[in-house]
Simulated assay, not measured.
Amino acid sequence: MPSRRVVSAERVVQGGCAYFLRHATVDMDALAGSLAVSRATLYRVVHSRDRLLGDVLWRLADRLLTQARVDTVATGVDGVLETTRRFAVAVRQAHPFRAFLRAEPVTAARVLFTPAGGVHVRVVEAQKAILAAAAADPAWSPADLDGAAFLYVRIVESMLYAELIRGRRADPVTAERAARAVLEAC
């Protein structure tokens, strides 16, 4: 009886990230081959392509968000907005991601905005942490971090993915004004 090759979820996500950065997508057959596992084993580990794409997109976005946070110099509401600006620029410059949005808009929407990919919930949690850190500024103390994070992320998503959602280019200035209004109302 041939032995089965075991691969960890972490290794699959790493392989998925590398594949995505080269090809702006994830082909499950090709990824399974590159990891030297069967397609069945790959699906047993990640459960679905959408879930793997969600893990890959989150891993790559989290790196950009972490760097944006490190580079941010402002504090409070201005710091939150600066982090978002830096992150948005990095996302718009991420050519594999932009190519994925153009090539697979339905999959991208499902993975980014629904539980199928799990990206949105992770982005909201990350934003909640950003807001909590910004609340250390005595000039700003949001009462409802969960609500503020959710609304804030939806505004940012509407700007980042305007072409995907509405077929129109994003308006970062209007989005930032709306995001500031949400933060200041909390």
Rank of each mutant, 00 (worst) to 15 (best):
V37F: 05
R39Y: 05
A40M: 08
A40T: 06
T41R: 12
L42P: 09
L42G: 02
Y43W: 04
Y43M: 13
R44T: 03
R44W: 04
R44E: 02
V46E: 13
V46K: 07
H47D: 07
H47N: 11
R49Y: 14
R49W: 04
R49T: 03
D50V: 02
L52R: 11
L52V: 11
L52D: 07
L53Q: 00
G54L: 12
D55I: 07
D55N: 05
V56F: 09
V56E: 06
V56C: 07
L57A: 08
L57I: 13
L57Y: 07
W58A: 06
R59A: 15
R59S: 13
R59G: 02
R59I: 05
L60M: 06
L60I: 01
D62M: 10
L65Y: 12
L65C: 03
T66A: 15
Q67Y: 07
R69Y: 14
R69F: 15
V70K: 12
V70L: 06
D71A: 14
D71M: 06
D71Y: 11
D71H: 10
D71F: 14
D71P: 14
T72D: 08
T72S: 09
T72Q: 14
T72M: 13
V73E: 07
A74G: 03
T75K: 08
G76P: 05
V77D: 06
D78L: 12
D78H: 14
D78V: 01
D78C: 04
G79V: 15
G79N: 09
G79F: 02
V80M: 08
V80T: 04
V80A: 09
L81K: 10
E82K: 12
E82A: 13
T84S: 06
T84F: 11
R85F: 02
R86G: 01
R86K: 07
R86N: 06
F87S: 10
F87I: 04
F87T: 04
F87Q: 11
A88K: 05
A88D: 08
V89S: 10
V89C: 09
A90C: 08
V91P: 01
V91R: 13
R92G: 09
R92C: 12
Q93C: 10
P96Y: 02
F97R: 11
F97A: 01
R98H: 04
F100A: 09
F100E: 04
F100T: 01
F100Y: 11
R102M: 05
A103E: 07
E104R: 06
E104W: 05
E104F: 08
P105G: 12
P105D: 00
P105S: 00
V106R: 11
T107E: 13
T107Q: 06
A108K: 01
A108M: 03
A108E: 06
A108W: 01
A108D: 06
A109T: 13
R110P: 01
V111G: 04
L112M: 13
L112I: 14
L112V: 05
F113E: 14
T114A: 00
P115H: 05
A116R: 07
G117K: 00
G118P: 00
G118K: 00
G118C: 04
V119C: 04
V119T: 13
H120W: 15
H120M: 07
H120T: 00
R122A: 12
